[in-house]
Design a binder for these strands. Structure first.
Lengths: 104, 104
DNA sequence: CTTGACACCTCGGGACGCTAGGTATAGGGT
DNA sequence: ACCCTATACCTAGCGTCCCGAGGTGTCAAG
């Protein structure tokens, strides 16, 4: 599968993962892999900048935490993030049905 | 819906449209709009370069035709294009199920 | 003779995923 | 002691590709 296929959908998926419960970057990567059935095994260079982007947009907030000697930046959804997630799910439905209509 | 959502999926859709029957660029744009239920109303600056890309990759071939005084470049699938279309449909299935798994 | 549909083209900007490189801690194997 | 793996963070730069904007030309309707 082409790599650029992700474009524009990664943000929605990160929102969905963090929407399930606060998570730090590394955990987001693991959840993405798990929930996609192994299809999305994303490099850090893809996910971390996306997390920063979403925080800059005000859809996520972060705070530092420490677990077993390692520092983690834990993200959670803001109110705007929660509502954006709803919209993104609708967009996905629309988009995927449209693609299916063309591909069919 | 974000514009970049298309990334990586446009080529597959163009292949699918031309796979239904030879078509010129403008007609491809119309078919994309029609088959997507109006969701994909793409500008020429998006579709023409994609068509050229696909021809350069050897998935499409083109020839000039004239209809009511207007010149048209008519595209059709090559054998490799036909087989690429099959793969792309499989990729889409995989991709969309993976996204659904994450978004759910 | 102007407007709009048809029909083609390309340049430049912007968005963003990924490679490659960097830092640092914890734990297990040798 | 040393190394490797997993965990955990970061960023610079590259490449891809969608799109806006601009350009050319035909034909029909008003």
């Amino acid at each position: 599968m082409k790599a650029e296929a992700l474009k524009g959908h990664l943000d929605s998926m990160i929102l969905a993962v963090v929407g399930t419960g606060p998570a730090h970057g590394y955990a987001v990567i693991e959840q993405l892999r798990r929930r996609s059935g192994g299809v999305f095994d994303l490099p850090e260079g893809t996910v971390y900048p996306a997390l920063h982007r979403l925080e800059a947009e005000g859809l996520l907030t972060s705070s530092w935490a420490t677990a077993s000697g390692r520092r983690r930046r834990v993200y959670k959804l803001t109110r705007r993030g929660r509502s954006a997630l709803g919209e993104r799910r609708g967009d996905w439905k629309l988009f995927s049905q449209a693609v299916e209509g063309v591909l069919a």
